[in-house]
Simulated assay, not measured.
Amino acid sequence: MDIQQLRYFVAVAEELHFGRAAERLHVTSSPLSRRIRELEKELGGDLFDRRYHEVGLTAFGLAFLEPARDVLTRFDALADVAAGPASAPTSVRVGATPLAPTQVLDEVLDTFAQVSPGIELPLTLEPSAGLLALLGARKLDLAVVHLPVDDPDLRSLALAEYRFAVVMRADDPLAGRPRLTLPEIADRQMLLTSPKVHPLVMKGLREHLRAGGVTRIRELPHNDVVQIAAHITHSRALSLFTPSTFAGRILGEIGLVLVPLDDPDLHFRLGVVWPASARGGPIAKVVAALRERRGDALTLL
């Protein structure tokens, strides 16, 4: 048994998906699966119940999870010991995307207040792509962004996911529907915000829409909610937002209608991201507390 096997096991246990765990760890699925099989053989029992397109923890895996997390936390803390004594930071630079529901940022800030009371939390609001660049340049310490990320120097923890609603004029023929599916809007023009807000996530969204038959996609050069509302009003196009986001609430307040999109495979994940080099200190404390509070379930927004 080695520390890499434990790290792989914990990632799969938290994601309950080998592919997402591999993305999070920046490895391919094959070596990830192989190392976990080796760990199970050494331990003498299955950690996961593997079914078609579904992964669950066995009773043995569930019992093994918390001790494994504890070992990882202690191991990562060794870096602080090796670095020698240092003065505790008085502030942590936090970033957040204003395009996501505010509940996740509130949870992160509240958790900081609990585990590191008195620490200052200067806040930067930027789209996810800008926040990831600031993290890479070490100008931020932690950020709430859309996931996944593909930077091997960053670590992430998913906290929540939210689904979409189709935005339209109040007099649109679809406005009275209780819900919609992609085939029902396949012939309509779909407005999307600029892919620059998070190229990786927006690429996945475009591909999913096209696979579902929505091919008349227009990408706007911005994410200005007022301009998007104007486009919907004047062109009768559709767009996708979430009612729980700040932008979604604005669209509803100015008279546009948001009809839930019935597509269980289309959702956005939101979580915290931090530099891999940030071991120990307030960042490690808040991540551990968020992980413990979340358990194995994501908050649905």
Rank of each mutant, 00 (worst) to 15 (best):
L142K: 03
V145K: 01
H146T: 11
P148H: 10
P148N: 02
V149P: 00
D151A: 07
D153Q: 15
L154R: 05
S156I: 02
L157Y: 11
L157N: 08
A158F: 03
A158L: 00
A158R: 06
A160W: 01
A160M: 13
A160G: 13
Y162N: 05
Y162P: 09
V167T: 10
M168V: 05
A170W: 09
D171P: 11
R177Y: 13
L180E: 00
T181G: 11
E184T: 07
I185M: 05
D187Q: 09
R188E: 12
R188F: 10
R188P: 04
Q189R: 10
L191M: 14
L192H: 01
T193F: 14
S194P: 09
P195G: 07
P199F: 04
P199H: 06
M202T: 15
M202L: 13
M202P: 02
M202N: 11
K203P: 11
E207N: 10
L209P: 01
G213I: 02
R218Y: 08
L220D: 09
L220Y: 07
H222P: 09
N223K: 03
N223I: 11
Q227K: 13
Q227F: 12
Q227S: 12
A229T: 08
I232S: 08
S235Q: 12
A237F: 12
A237C: 07
A237S: 15
L238N: 03
F241V: 10
T242N: 15
P243V: 00
T245P: 12
T245F: 14
A247E: 14
I250L: 15
I250W: 15
G252F: 11
I254D: 12
I254R: 14
L258V: 03
L258D: 04
V259N: 06
L261A: 06
D262N: 09
D263Q: 11
D265Q: 11
G271K: 03
G271M: 05
V272K: 00
A276Q: 06
R279C: 10
G280N: 05
G281F: 09
G281M: 00
P282T: 00
I283Y: 03
I283M: 04
I283C: 02
A284K: 00
